[in-house]
Design a protein around this nucleic acid. Structure first.
Lengths: 264, 264
DNA sequence: AGACTAGGTGAATCGAATT
DNA sequence: GAATTCGATTCACCTAGTC
């Protein structure tokens, strides 16, 4: 039996009412979201497990994420992660659950950005709407040709961001015009997680939030969203399952913070 | 009453068995597809009406395409087109119909590329699969910032290509590696239809077909697919509803052909 | 140079059920 | 009981740009 680890509500309240730049919880995403109060965050930016690798159900469920997403001759090792083995219906149901909790926890008008790949893109648009969010568009992360080439096919060169808002988006939000395509090659030096996103990509994407916003990421992974949020002057609250990944996140966030404070 | 105009099967057979570079039919898409024999085309590349403009059903159904997709202060006028007023379920059903006919008409292993915008992307992936095609990916057309900027939002900067194949795609197809993102700004000088695509975009996209292929476009619009196919050395067969648009297509195709033959 | 890439395929292998 | 079939699983290899 794993010890059930619930978030400390006083800690969370302290973060929400205080000035701390970030709060990180190590444990289950739904339990964590459940312990957050209503309408307490200004934006949601997250990169959940896609559950999309593998041709057969058994390939998805029995293989580790490393086996699914990494080439066999690659030497570098990343930490495996859980929650990547749902089938289509399960993925929709699960996404709808955490998206509905995010909706409750978000302030009216708050934007949401959810990463996905081409295989789960339609399901993700359904799930966002099932979670009561107003779906507003699809932005693209162009990895350039730093993806695996394929003879006779269009390369799987993009991942996508399904984005929307909690109800109406005021026209006078203090946010500029944002692009719809973000072009950033995959660099292994800037990759701290098997499915990690480039930090510059996340720095661009968090700009959807208004200055001073609290940004929520329920799937922190290696913490790139939190790091980008801190660097860009936002406050961030996140959650990650595995303790190994959580340590990585905490160290990266503290580093980003030290850099920011040192740079003043 | 409109006169019902059915395609001449002998003309089609002549095209399919002969050497003519293109064949264009003016009339209803489903009737046209119905008169094509099984397994006669090598690829399908098409840009159907999206039926996505307008927030309400009445905006979609009662406004002309010019009113929906053109800014009020634009001086240039395009020909209005029909078939752009379906609701979500109707769009799915209608797409599934013509996609299933395309499937019948395509040779085994033939690739298909269907353009769509972000709103209809999930429905289009459903429709492609409903039409028996194997869905293989999403490629993106990046219009760059030549789209309308949006304050506080991600720009709707991409249109998408849902692509797939009729069953298995042999690994040894005589086609190189293709990108997954096509970056081409919208230039009004290169726009012959309200929703027309840049010719260079289409020249890139038709490369999914093997050399010498017959490419089918059941929604020729202003004929950019046909022109691109001819220019790139493929043969093309297409259909367009309005006679005004059909004339535009025929003239552009003949021009492209003359240019190609003159350039020899 | 050499390693890397939220891939994809078909051949080889292994296991269980069937003939 | 040996042979055969089918399915599931594993494995090796292709691709080209970027760092």
């Amino acid at each position: 039996m794993f010890p059930v680890h619930l978030p400390d509500i006083r800690e969370i309240t302290n973060f929400l009412t205080g000035e701390d730049p970030f709060f990180l919880f190590s444990g289950d995403c739904l339990g964590f979201l459940h312990s957050l109060p209503d309408s307490c965050v200004d934006a949601v930016v997250t990169d959940p497990p896609y559950s999309s690798g593998g041709r057969t159900s058994s390939e998805r469920t029995t293989r580790s994420t490393t086996a699914k997403y990494q080439q066999s001759d690659t030497k570098r090792k990343y930490v495996d992660f859980d929650g990547d083995s749902r089938d289509q219906r399960g993925y929709l149901a699960w996404c709808a659950l955490w998206l509905a909790e995010c909706y409750r926890v978000a302030k009216p008008g708050a934007p949401i950005v959810v990463f996905t790949d081409w295989r789960q893109l339609p399901i993700t648009t359904d799930a966002v709407q099932a979670g009561s969010w107003t779906w507003r568009g699809i932005a693209a992360w162009d990895k350039t040709r730093s993806c695996r080439p394929q003879r006779g096919r269009f390369a799987a060169q993009c991942e996508f961001m399904v984005w929307g808002s909690k109800g109406a988006m005021p026209a006078d939000r203090n946010v500029g015009t944002l692009p719809g395509v973000f072009t950033h090659p995959v660099k292994s030096a800037d990759k701290h997680h098997l499915t990690g996103k480039p930090s510059r990509l996340m720095s661009d994407v968090v700009q959807i939030a208004e200055p001073g916003a609290i940004i929520l990421d329920p799937f922190a992974g290696s913490g790139t969203t939190l790091v980008a949020a801190i660097e860009q002057g936002y406050r961030a609250i996140g959650c990650e399952w595995g303790s190994e990944n959580t340590d990585i996140v905490r160290n990266r966030a503290l580093e980003a913070l030290a850099l920011k404070n040192g740079g003043r």
